[in-house]
C-alpha cells in the first residue's frame, strides 16, 4: 500500500543522504521525497511517499527512527491527512488551441504563470492523482515539459508533527 511518511530531522549536511541511502540500501521504494527547512532553521521537514506491505512499512518507520539525525517520524496514513503537490507544466498553445488550453487549466484550477508565443506554463497544485488526471486529459503531443515537486503532507486538525 502507498504510505506518506513525514519526518523532522536535524538540518545538517548529509542528513538527506542518510535517508536516501537507507531506502536504497534496504531496497525500499521511494515514489517521491521532498525536503526543506522548517520555521525553525535547525530542523528539516521531509515527506517521503513510499509503498510496501504492512511489515515493510513498519520496518521503514523503525529504520527511519533509528537514524541518529531523525528527530520524529509520523506515518500520515495512520490518521487523516492532506497531501499536496505542485506541478509546473509547459504546454503547446498555438493559435487554435490557446483557448482550449486556457479552459482546461481553469477546470483544474491551475494558473497560467508564463505566456509565450507558442506555449503556456501552467502552475497546478493538488493531490498526485489530480495532477495525473490533468496530464491524462491533455493531448500528449501538447506537453512540452513537466516538473513535479513530489507530495508534501500534513495531518488534519490537531495531528501535528512538532518537537
Amino acid at each position: 500500500m502507498r504510505h506518506i511518511v513525514s519526518l523532522l530531522m536535524e538540518n545538517e549536511a548529509g542528513a538527506l543522504s542518510r535517508v536516501a541511502g537507507l531506502f536504497s540500501a534496504r531496497g525500499y521504494n521511494i515514489e517521491s521525497l521532498t525536503v526543506a527547512a522548517t520555521e525553525d532553521p535547525t530542523l528539516s521537514r521531509m515527506t517521503i511517499v513510499t509503498s510496501g506491505s504492512d511489515e515493510v512499512i513498519e520496518q521503514i518507520i523503525k529504520q527511519l527512527n533509528k537514524l541518529v539525525d531523525v528527530v520524529k517520524v509520523l506515518d500520515l496514513n495512520d490518521g487523516k491527512f492532506i497531501e499536496r503537490e505542485l506541478m509546473l507544466i509547459k504546454v503547446k498553445a498555438t493559435s487554435t488551441h490557446r483557448e482550449e488550453m486556457k479552459r482546461m487549466c481553469d477546470i483544474f484550477r491551475g494558473r497560467i504563470i508564463d505566456v509565450a508565443d507558442g506555449s503556456f506554463t501552467i502552475e497546478l497544485t493538488g493531490s498526485g492523482t489530480k495532477l495525473d488526471a490533468f496530464i491524462e486529459s491533455l493531448d500528449k503531443t501538447a506537453i512540452l515539459e513537466t516538473v513535479r515537486t513530489g507530495a508534501s503532507g500534513i495531518g488534519r486538525g490537531d495531528r501535528i508533527l512538532k518537537i
Partner: peptide, 10 residues
C-alpha cells in the same frame, strides 16, 4: 532496537 523486532519473524 525496535527494528530488530518483527524484522524476519513476527
Amino acid at each position: 532496537d525496535p527494528s530488530s523486532i518483527s524484522k524476519r519473524v513476527k
